[in-house]
């Protein structure tokens, strides 16, 4: 049984992403990925962050200047769920230099509310690990697979 609330809406009316913004999104994605690497987090965290971001964006219209805040807060939430130690709020806001702790904590609560506190969603990463194991893959295939995911 697939619960709709866990899936980001792609084609319905609430989807606000137009082409220009979509390009921004891709840049943004690579940017958060870099941040993710810097903090040395679990790979699961990155995938979970993307899902949380997608789910939130498909429900709420946000301003362009909030994009980084939503991205960083998704990372914070994903990391709180996945990692033993999550990056400090102080360090996350220092990356963007435009937001305060208060902004981030308020965004966190807002996102939790919109996401209905449900952060335990399966990520592509988990499935990929399983498939690679089943396929008795070598390193080359693994790298290719994670590049494509």
């Amino acid at each position: 049984e697939v619960k709709m609330e866990n899936l980001p809406g792609i084609d319905d009316d609430c989807n606000q992403l137009e082409v220009a913004e979509y390009v921004d999104e891709i840049y943004h994605y690579y940017w958060v990925m870099e941040v993710h690497l810097k903090f040395d987090l679990m790979p699961e965290t990155l995938y979970l962050m993307v899902i949380l971001l997608d789910r939130y964006l498909s429900e709420v219209k946000i301003k362009k200047n909030e994009m980084q805040l939503v991205g960083l807060t998704s990372l914070l939430l994903a990391s709180k769920y996945e990692d033993f130690w999550h990056p400090r709020v102080k360090d996350l806001i220092s990356i963007s230099e435009t937001y305060t702790r208060d902004h981030m904590l308020r965004m966190e609560k807002l996102m939790l509310k919109k996401l209905k506190f449900r952060l335990n969603v399966p990520t592509p990463y988990v499935f990929m690990l399983r498939f690679l194991k089943a396929a008795q893959s070598d390193t080359k295939l693994e790298h290719l697979a994670f590049y494509l995911v």
């Binding site: 939430l77 709180k80 966190e108 952060l119």
Partner: peptide
Amino acid sequence: EPEGVPSYLIAGVSLLKE
């Protein structure tokens, strides 16, 4: 909480909802 909603609560509530 300087770090916002504590992680035990986020993980705990996510689990409990399941």
